[in-house]
């Protein structure tokens, strides 16, 4: 017994080094994007408040780009305003129907957009995250899509604290986004190989589809998280994977990740219902077996 105590006393520093090292590695390997990291909630409140201060200065460097982007969106929206359109035929009149209860064409809101501001952002690593200045208090939750001020895709919310939220950027080796080509409507997956922060990879497009450089890649309609039809990027280089019969397409991002400032957080209001339906179906099918 005495020897054990002597041993511990002699190698106390080494032992405490090993214990601390164990804690660090445990934190590293248990953390992934689905589990909230140890102490990340509290820590992101603190880092968030520092980030918000630094960001106030940083904003001035990107004002011009941001301004152009917002101006372009305004332009496209103003073109949609009703006063721009006049009925050609004077006998045709628009009748506003106020009794819409039984109307089959009644619209249901599916996506809710909330504005937010980026307070921290990186592009230099294999796993890049952004931090936004809106959190659970403003209704931000996990698995909401994040779009740039001009409507191109930035990433997905993966964690929230009261006042801040963490976003997994498209530049993250674990990011997988269902995408489709605008021209041919075929579906694939957007990934990132951690090589160049301007280029993403589009996989799963078979070689019989015709692709050209410059084709637009949009978010897919088959997704619970992302609103469909928003720009991800444009095809920059076409490689063919000889073994599998699929293309490996390099996609230039629509977003300049170095200068993301104002973003929208988009919530799919029917997500819970869709997931429940999927879950119920799966249970029903399992029972039948």
């Amino acid at each position: 017994m005495r020897n054990i105590f002597l041993f511990i006393r002699r190698y106390f520093v080494l032992l405490s080094f090993l214990v601390l090292q164990g804690i660090a590695l445990w934190m590293l390997f248990t953390y992934n994007r689905f589990h909230q990291a140890v102490g990340m909630g509290v820590a992101s409140e603190i880092t968030g408040s520092v980030n918000a201060q630094v960001d106030k200065v940083d904003d001035y460097f990107h004002l011009r780009q941001e301004n152009l982007r917002v101006h372009r969106v305004n332009d496209s929206l103003l073109n949609l305003v009703r006063t721009n359109f006049t009925p050609v035929d004077t006998t045709a009149r628009q009748i506003a129907d106020t009794l819409r209860i039984t109307d089959m064409t009644r619209q249901v809101r599916r996506y809710l957009w909330r504005p937010a501001k980026v307070v921290y952002n990186s592009v230099n690593f294999e796993r890049n995250y952004l931090q936004l200045n809106r959190g659970a208090k403003e209704g931000i939750a996990e698995n909401m899509a994040v779009l740039n001020s001009d409507g191109s895709l930035v990433g997905l919310v993966v964690g929230t604290s009261n006042n801040f939220s963490q976003v997994m950027s498209l530049l993250h080796v674990q990011s997988r986004v269902p995408a489709s080509l605008k021209n041919s409507n075929v579906f694939g997956t957007i990934e990132w190989n951690a090589k160049d922060p301007r280029l993403l990879l589009l996989k799963g497009i078979s070689r019989d589809v015709k692709v050209k450089r410059g084709d637009s890649v949009l978010t897919s309609i088959y997704s619970y998280n992302y609103p469909p039809g928003f720009l991800i990027g444009r095809i920059a280089k076409i490689d063919e994977d000889k073994a599998s019969g699929f293309y490996i397409l390099q996609v230039r991002t629509a977003v300049n990740f170095n200068a993301v400032q104002q973003v929208f957080v988009v919530e799919n209001l029917q997500r819970a219902e869709q997931l429940k339906l999927e879950e119920d179906t799966r249970k029903k099918m399992e029972q039948k077996k």
Partner: peptide, 28 residues
């Protein structure tokens, strides 16, 4: 020294959102 290494690494880790990575290196 060990404790300070732990704190240094962890505080950077929380900014970079990679808990444990720099902590382990700093401890070493």
């Amino acid at each position: 020294l060990l404790a300070l290494g732990f704190i240094t690494g962890l505080s950077l880790d929380y900014f970079k959102m990679t808990p444990g990575l720099h902590t382990a290196a700093c401890l070493l």
